[in-house]
C-alpha cells in the first residue's frame, strides 16, 4: 500500500517531536491531504479511547483505601523511624519479646536471608556512660549512623540495621563506626560484637568482614520472608557512604526472589576483639538526625527533547 510521503511525520507530530518549521509545514500539508488527516485523527482518537477506558477501569478499581487500611494495621511494623517515642516502644517490645524467647529457649531456624547492603543503621546507647563523639549519649536517644559518621564510640551500644528486616547487634568497647558500601564498618575497634536479634548480618571490623551469627529471632512484627541472602563478598574499596537517613539499597529487588537461604551456622562467632590503633579524633560534626535532607533527586526536570 502506498503511503503519503509525509506519513512518517504523523507520529512525530503526535509526539511533539517536530521542529517549529517542520510542524508548520506539516500543518499545511494536513490541510490538503485527507489521508494524513484521517490517520492523525485516528491516532489521537485511539489514544483518547485507550486513556478513557483505562481511566474508567481505574476509577472503579482503586485500592488506595485498602492500602492505607492495611498499612495502619501494620503500624507496629513501621520500617524505620527517627521518632524517639516510636523507638522507645520498639525497644520495649523487642526486649520483652527477647526475654520471653530466651527464657523458653526458643530457637526457630526460620530461613532468613540478609542482602548485605542495608537501609538505615541506627544506634542507641545502652547505658549512661556511653560516649558518642566524646560526649555522653542519652540512653533513650536514637541516632542515625549516617548523620554522625564517622561516629567515635566508647561504651555499650545497640545497632539496629534495617534492610527489609531488622537486625539488632550490640557493640561493647571502643570503635569508630561508619557506613561503608552499605555495611556498618568499625575501625580502630577494640570491642566485642554480638547479634541480639534478627537475621545473620555481616559487618566490617578493622578491615575484615565479620559475620554475626544469629542467636535469637524476634518473630514479630518482622517479616523474615523478605530477606535476601547474606553476601560476604565485600568490596575492599573504602568509599564514604551517602549521608542520608534512608539512602541505600536495591535490596527490595532481591528481597522478592523466592530462593530460600539457610542460615550459615558455621559463621564466625559473634564476637571480635582486635587490638586497636589510636582512635582517630572525631572530626565529624554533629548533625541532627531529624533534619530534612538537602538534596532532592526527584525534582521534576523540564522535558528535554534533544531530538535525534
Amino acid at each position: 500500500m502506498n503511503r503519503c510521503p509525509e506519513n512518517d511525520k504523523i507520529l512525530l507530530f503526535c509526539e511533539h517531536e517536530l521542529s517549529d518549521v517542520e510542524r508548520s509545514q506539516f500543518e499545511l500539508h494536513l490541510k490538503t491531504c485527507a489521508e494524513c488527516r484521517r490517520e492523525l485523527e485516528q491516532t489521537v482518537a485511539d489514544d483518547a479511547l485507550l486513556r478513557a477506558g483505562i481511566d474508567e477501569a481505574f476509577a472503579r478499581h482503586r485500592v488506595s483505601n485498602r492500602i492505607m487500611a492495611q498499612i495502619r494495621n501494620e503500624k507496629t511494623a513501621t520500617p524505620v523511624a527517627d521518632s524517639h517515642k516510636g523507638w522507645r516502644y520498639f525497644w520495649l517490645t523487642a526486649f520483652a519479646l527477647l526475654t520471653i524467647i530466651t527464657v523458653v529457649s526458643l530457637y526457630t531456624p526460620t530461613p532468613a536471608k540478609y542482602h548485605g547492603r542495608v537501609g538505615a543503621v541506627m544506634l542507641q546507647a545502652l547505658n549512661e556512660k556511653s560516649m558518642l563523639q566524646s560526649e555522653k549519649l542519652a540512653v533513650d536517644q536514637v541516632c542515625d549512623l549516617a548523620t554522625v559518621e564517622p561516629a567515635k564510640l566508647d561504651g555499650c551500644f545497640l545497632f539496629t540495621v534495617t534492610s527489609g528486616q531488622t537486625s539488632v547487634f550490640k557493640m561493647s568497647g571502643q570503635a569508630i563506626a561508619r557506613i561503608n558500601q552499605g555495611l556498618p564498618e568499625f575501625t580502630d575497634a577494640k570491642a566485642t560484637f554480638e547479634l541480639v536479634s534478627g537475621a545473620i548480618i555481616t559487618i566490617l571490623v578493622n578491615g575484615s568482614p565479620l559475620k554475626l551469627e544469629r542467636k535469637t529471632i524476634i518473630p514479630a512484627p518482622f517479616n523474615t520472608s523478605d530477606l535476601a541472602p547474606d553476601r560476604p563478598d565485600l568490596p575492599s574499596a573504602h568509599l564514604p557512604s551517602v549521608a542520608s537517613t534512608s539512602c541505600a539499597s536495591d535490596a527490595i529487588i532481591d528481597c522478592m526472589s523466592e530462593t530460600p537461604c539457610i542460615i550459615d551456622n558455621s559463621a564466625a562467632n559473634a564476637s571480635a576483639a582486635t587490638p586497636a590503633v589510636e582512635a582517630v579524633p572525631g572530626s565529624a560534626t554533629w548533625v541532627d538526625p531529624t533534619q530534612p535532607p538537602g538534596k532532592n533527586p526527584f525534582a521534576d526536570e523540564p522535558l528535554k527533547l534533544d531530538g535525534n
Binding site: 498499612i71 541505600a248 535490596a251
Partner: peptide, 11 residues
C-alpha cells in the same frame, strides 16, 4: 513498598 521504605534508595 511501605514495609521496605527504609531500604528505598533515594537516588
Amino acid at each position: 513498598a511501605f514495609r521496605h521504605l527504609a531500604s528505598f534508595d533515594c537516588e
